[in-house]
Design a protein around this nucleic acid. Structure first.
Lengths: 337, 337
DNA sequence: CTGAAAGCGCTTACAG
DNA sequence: CTGAAAGCGCTTACAG
């Protein structure tokens, strides 16, 4: 069985090849009647559109490269789901690459995307990515956007990191805490910087000394740190994200301390497990799925109009008060969420 | 700046176009010296290989479509990471599609993959996918393989579901439990069937009545079910997977019962959180990342040799004894892991 | 709408 | 290794 081409569809429908091509792309300079006749003919013959040929001729692949720093992190998985859904809806396919936080792998994958070729790249840069990467992308003429993690320039969509930890810290201050430590954020990137700043500035405004208990985003590492916390140490922990907060709560439990009663804990991200953990986690919601969708739309806008100024979007952070901060257990000084 | 093509590289290197083309693909019928000269010329000119053109001419895209049932499920995220890594290593790119358990979306995405075109499809079929889908894929001439969830035929890589729940059930029987219930598995698919069978047969062999507490794979739903469990109900729960087990433990805690002491709980999958939960979860390990890698290799073999009989691989299940089964707390009848 | 044609950048087969 | 050439299946511009 020969492969069916547009030429065959045109013959079957009794129209010219160029007419069939236009009809198959649903071009509206054709009469509805003609378009339907062509589509019917295509269906009868079992025609399958060949995007690789279209790509080659038109130079547009309707494919986007998605560079994920770590897909097994639930937050990034949710974000990826949002990106994929928004791209799919816009008729774009998603080429996935998981860098696993390796700058080397990331580089190789970008070069692969360039060869592919993709119409644009959406990335969550691996920790330690030099900002000059943007220069390369620009030199290559590859439209790009960052999400969550970004640089000082370039199209970007990210959470309000500073505002988020500010909300968390002020909430804990309002509950009467004074010895509040920041747990996590050992990696050097824009997210870490923003979350630390939001915390540290709030502490400074309250005349208190900010303290960082640095660890990587790893439940086990956070647990180990929290387990060894002295009893005259912090009474509250502003955690870098929910995974760190879960680790902290596990470590505290192992040390015989009850999170939310003996010590307050807040997270960041509001991943699904946050509402289900025991105690339920007080955290900062940043809606990763919606952020992914927003980032996809930003990139598509870049692709459609590369000369427009690159948009920078901030997703609002919201405090979600549950149990781990102790507000609902102690009836502390906090009036509401 | 004009785009650099193979023709330009050939001129720069002082060889024929066909020689340059062969050299760039590192064909070993050429002398090493010639290959290097061509690669150097390509580097000097900033040549970028255009896969879309190669794809069109050769009919091979070196791209695989990956259909994930739910990427936000940590188990499938880990699996996806394994698939992507193995494909990348083999020089294949991954087109990602997240069906979110929708058979309709799945269908649309497969048709998209067909147009793309991809060299093959690796899928975790959405719940409720009719086995006739395989007929369509074969009619389309699209090499395919399933992973985790599959059908009675076709290339497949999956965990030993039956063996896994058998291990868990026999472990609990060995600890002296008699009222053991199976929690979860409301969805109809091959995984559910296998896990239920492993449990039910072990119960039957022990002369006991199998009982299913059906719920979807959802922490909240499992928690609700476990919270309402009567005190004269089951003393042990064989859970469909780790997420269900986490839900069960949360529900039990809310009802004031201590998992691992008042009631035994086992999971399935051994996702990362399993070792870190409180209590640590006794579960069945199936190494999702390795399973993903194995599945990718199976598909690549199908693509390379479509006429060979489709391989079916089973990944061995292993019991990982931790705390939630009570074995290590009670010093029960279990001798080891 | 038609019809003939060029061209995207490769791969591939072939005679030398 | 060379060199000339065909062809993958589209898109696109154009004269009618």
């Amino acid at each position: 069985m020969q492969r069916v081409r547009i030429k065959d569809v045109a013959r079957e429908a009794g129209v010219a090849l160029s007419t069939a091509a236009l009809a198959l792309r649903n071009d509206n300079q054709l009469r509805e009647e003609t378009r339907r006749a062509v589509r019917d003919a295509a269906a009868r013959l079992g025609y399958v559109y060949d995007r690789s040929a279209a790509m080659m001729r038109s130079g547009r692949s309707h494919t986007v490269g998605l560079l994920v720093c770590e897909i097994t992190n639930p937050f990034y998985a949710e974000l990826t789901a949002g990106v994929e859904a928004a791209l799919e809806e816009a008729g774009f396919a998603t080429m996935l690459a998981n860098t696993g936080e390796s700058v080397t792998r990331q580089r190789r994958m970008l070069e692969r995307f360039r060869e592919q070729p993709v119409d644009g790249v959406l990335m969550m840069p691996a920790s330690g990515t030099p900002p000059t990467l943007l220069d390369d992308l620009e030199r290559w003429g590859l439209p790009h956007a960052t999400v969550v993690r970004g640089f000082r320039r370039g199209a970007h969509t990210g959470p309000d990191n500073r505002g988020g930890t500010r909300l968390a810290t002020e909430h804990l201050l309002g509950l009467g805490h004074r010895r509040i430590a920041f747990l996590g954020g050992a990696a050097k990137n824009s997210v870490t910087a923003g979350r630390w700043e939001g915390y540290a500035r709030s502490m400074a405004r309250a005349g208190l000394e900010p303290v960082q208990l640095a660890c990587r985003t790893d439940i086990g590492e956070a647990a180990a740190l929290a387990q060894d916390l002295p009893h005259d140490g912090p009474t509250a922990l502003v955690c870098f994200n929910d995974s760190v907060a879960f680790g902290a709560m596990l470590g505290l439990s192992r040390a015989g301390r009850v999170p939310g009663r003996d010590i307050a804990v807040t997270g960041f991200d509001d991943i699904r497990e946050a509402a289900l953990w025991h105690p339920r986690l007080t955290t900062i919601s940043t809606s990763p799925r919606q952020m992914g969708q927003a980032a996809a739309r930003v990139l598509l806008a870049r692709i459609a109009d590369p000369d427009a100024p690159p948009p920078r979007e901030t997703i609002r952070a919201q405090l979600v008060v549950r149990e781990s901060c102790g507000a609902k257990l102690n009836g502390g000084g906090c009036s509401s969420g």
